[in-house]
Design a protein around this nucleic acid. Structure first.
Lengths: 145, 145
DNA sequence: ATGACTGCAAAGCCTTTGCACGCAA
DNA sequence: TTGCGTGCAAAGGCTTTGCAGTCAT
């Protein structure tokens, strides 16, 4: 139940290879870390996470890896807080969640809702954009604040 | 039909007064400009908009006004593009729209959808947060790109 | 008259870019 | 061997902060 046969990181590595990219250390490290996360992390959190597991990766390489993985459709970028972007895996099967953010402490809680997805799909179909994704953010105060 | 009896700027001025704030030039200028906008603007666009109508307002004052108006519940901050925040009026009666953003050219198009709002309201009620607002962003490529 | 508001400039923060070195293929 | 990937440091862009002068009350 823990690890599926077709993990996100497998999918990511395959996609990278198909796109003609090499498997450099920084890239692999970022993929390895995000594989274990259930919700979004920003670049500095990723840097710290890697450092605390003994892996030293240059900050610029992290940003470059994130940008690239996003362009390949492997990561979704979230603009949750003021000036910092967070990233989380995109499930190959399209399964995803959205976020509730506490304006006080910055806490982020994921949620999912089928009816919400249906309503968004309808909007996406009726627009004249070629939609690649969407993002829903609820803001407020969490129970602790 | 153009101007309603209870305009947003009237509401904003009243709210500012109740909160014990003075009606300084910069603040009034920002309120006056946002009153005329139907969608979100960022700080630099506001600065330019004011300058082109002959009003010179310091950039810092614009940021301070925007932050303050947001805290008073008069403006909603949107994190649409990478590192820049946009702001738009919050309708006192709760009427609002969401946004479709072109990843190529940055174009932003507003849309509204009652079913989407219903689905979001249901999620908001079932969460243990005290929700103050929400934000939906669809991303993709516009017809021109 | 008083202190809140404003404007300028400097500082801060996240992110991107330039460049030389190292490593994957 | 080749040139993509990486790391460091510098540069960039948006936003915030410090401070002195100004204006609303």
């Amino acid at each position: 139940m823990a690890t599926e046969n077709l993990s996100w990181s497998d999918h990511a590595l395959t996609t990278l290879e198909r796109a003609g990219h090499r498997k450099g250390g920084a890239r692999l490290a970022v993929i390895g870390l995000l594989e274990t996360q259930s919700c979004a992390l920003n670049a500095l959190e990723i840097e710290e996470g890697l450092k605390s597991s003994g892996v030293k990766v240059g900050r610029a390489s992290i940003y470059r890896a994130l940008e690239q993985l996003e362009e390949l459709g492997l990561l979704r970028r979230l603009d949750v807080s003021k000036g910092t972007a967070s990233y989380e895996r995109i499930d190959p099967e399209g399964h995803h969640h959205h976020h509730i953010v506490c304006d006080e402490c910055g806490k982020v809680v994921p949620f999912e809702d089928p009816k919400l997805e249906l309503a968004i799909s309808a909007v996406e179909r009726s627009s004249d954009f070629d939609i690649s994704g969407h993002e829903v953010i609820l803001r407020g105060q969490c129970a602790n604040c």
